[in-house]
């Protein structure tokens, strides 16, 4: 039994604390819940395998530093906080088109169950369909089904060149027809910023191709993103107004105010409720917080 499993135990309300960067997502944890911290540290990292095994309590900053030393990166958003926190929140990187979807990048999860047992789901390889997909269930679960101890993540090489460019007159929705694989297309209503990545000549060619729809200049990075994420359909983004940054082609919009929680269908709620009850019959994991 792992130390973390002993810490979590099998009884009494418990909540796991990461960097508290998204502490309020999914509701307030009941005050009687005992706070625990997941272990930290990179367990093993083989850049040639393009996977990293990392403990949940590791900060995303530390993980990023480790990966960058080998010219690699991963799909986790680099916004502070811990690896475990990021995984159970399930937010994608703002450059998701270049980084890949977080849910696809979590290869294996090890978590402590409500009964205090160590459970492993998924597998260490980049491709795996062995049994039901517990990693997908844990991503975005807000720690309501199990408390993550360790994950294996897929990593990716950092492209030889990354360049943000900005235009004040280009139609952000026309970028996709000009650039094969933009890593990000962000729009704040007034201007558009595009992240071009790849081999230097490809980045230059893409930039050149973009000039057909507007004037572009190189900029240092992305927009400052407002705090709250909204999840919309890509087709709905042209209706955005006020203060916002929208990820074109993805559907994420950053705003100053939080998105009202969308209503889920009764059937989805039914499955989700059964899921929660099956995994945490006594409701001791992060009580008060709900993923649905």
């Amino acid at each position: 039994m792992s130390d973390f499993a002993k810490l979590v135990g099998a009884e009494g309300p418990v909540t796991v604390v990461g960097g508290r960067t998204r502490w309020h997502v999914g509701g307030e944890v009941r005050p009687d819940a005992r706070e625990v911290h997941a272990p930290s540290g990179v367990v093993s990292y083989d850049p040639a395998e393009m996977t990293v095994t990392v403990r949940a309590g590791t900060t995303t900053t530390e993980l990023t530093t480790t990966l960058n030393e080998a010219s690699q990166r991963c799909a986790l958003p680099e916004r502070g906080g811990t690896v475990g926190g990021s995984v159970v929140i399930g937010e994608n990187h703002p450059e998701v088109l270049g980084r890949g979807w977080l849910t696809s990048s979590v290869l294996q999860v090890t978590y402590i169950s409500a009964e205090g047992k160590l459970i492993r789901g998924g597998g260490p390889t980049v491709k795996n369909v062995s049994g039901f997909d517990l990693p997908r269930l844990v991503v975005g679960s807000l720690g309501t089904l199990g408390l993550v101890e360790e994950v294996i993540l897929r990593t990716n090489p950092i492209p030889p060149r990354s360049q943000w460019v900005e235009s004040h007159d280009a139609d952000p929705f026309a970028v996709a027809s000009r650039v094969l694989r933009p890593s990000a297309v962000l729009w704040n209503g007034a201007s558009t910023r595009v992240l071009l990545e790849g081999h230097a000549p490809d980045v230059a060619a893409s930039l050149n191709s973009l000039t057909a729809i507007g004037a572009w200049s190189e900029v240092d990075g992305s927009f400052e993103l407002p705090q709250h994420r909204w999840s919309l359909q890509p087709a709905e983004l042209n209706g955005c107004s006020g203060t916002f940054v929208a990820s074109i082609g993805v559907g994420t919009v950053w705003r100053d105010e939080p998105q009202p929680r969308p209503a889920l269908s009764p059937s989805v709620i039914e499955i989700s409720t059964r899921m929660k009850n099956n995994f945490d019959p006594t409701g001791r994991l992060n009580p008060g917080r709900s993923a649905f």
Binding site: L137, G140, L145, S231, L232, Q233, A235, G251, L264, F292
Partner: peptide, 9 residues
């Protein structure tokens, strides 16, 4: 069809 549908995946 939205970017990050809410609830369990």
């Amino acid at each position: 069809l939205d970017a990050e549908p809410s609830g369990y995946d």
